[in-house]
Design a protein around this nucleic acid. Structure first.
Lengths: 112, 112
DNA sequence: TGATTCGTTAAGCATGTACTTAAGTATCCC
DNA sequence: GGGATACTTAAGTACATGCTTAACGAATCA
């Protein structure tokens, strides 16, 4: 813990934008081309490309180009970083609450 | 899905900074005062206050003031938002992979 | 009461973000 | 070849972020 983790910085920053989250949600359904990915969004293609670049730099999305079509897909590994960090935090305070519960039970025992 | 969710915007943005994540990690251990929370960080108190404001506006942290001391604690509910969103995404692609697996098994069956 | 501690507000500054439009480049298809 | 398709690059703009220092406010304590 208490790691600076620039990669978590990038992942959380990537997810801090509703357009990019929507892109991730779309790619969770299936891999797709840049223009298909872009189609629901009311913004220019370059804007979508910039969001895509942020997602790729974070590691959440990978892509490869075949001919003139770039196909994008989720990198499920990177998702694990988020899930692991949140789980670590949760276990921190749940551990604390468990200890508190034990302590309360100890007190209850003393009252018998 | 495909919700704009400004609150998820704020939560992910709050977590996209290593100082703020470290603050959350500290508060996961136990509630503490502003100055205790600030103590490990090599930055001015106003800077810490601004990070704290971001965390409070996101809903990840709550605080109340007693006398001149403000005590901060994690709001575990808001954590659930992150966990739920990531879990939803994961189930999306895992559902897809399950269906693919079923399809492959169907193909295998046909070859018997 | 006056000094100290704990927190807050305000102003300023350098940098980063999220777009835009305009002008490319590289494939594909007839 | 030549036009349509699918991206890509560049440049510019408006606004947000992450700090700083300086000054202020309010509770505690000797």
């Amino acid at each position: 813990m208490l790691n600076e983790s620039p990669s978590l910085d990038r992942v959380f920053h990537a997810l801090a934008d509703s357009t990019r989250r929507a892109m991730v949600e779309r790619l969770a359904l299936r891999p797709m081309s840049v223009s298909e990915l872009a189609s629901p969004f009311a913004m220019s293609l370059p804007a979508v490309m910039q969001h895509l670049a942020v997602l790729e730099e974070s590691g959440l999305v990978r892509s490869h180009k075949a001919g003139r079509v770039r196909t994008c897909r989720i990198d499920t590994e990177t998702f694990g970083l988020v899930e692991r960090w949140t789980a670590d935090c949760r276990s921190e305070w749940e551990g604390r609450l468990d200890k508190l519960e034990d302590y309360i039970n100890t007190l209850k025992g003393q009252h018998k």
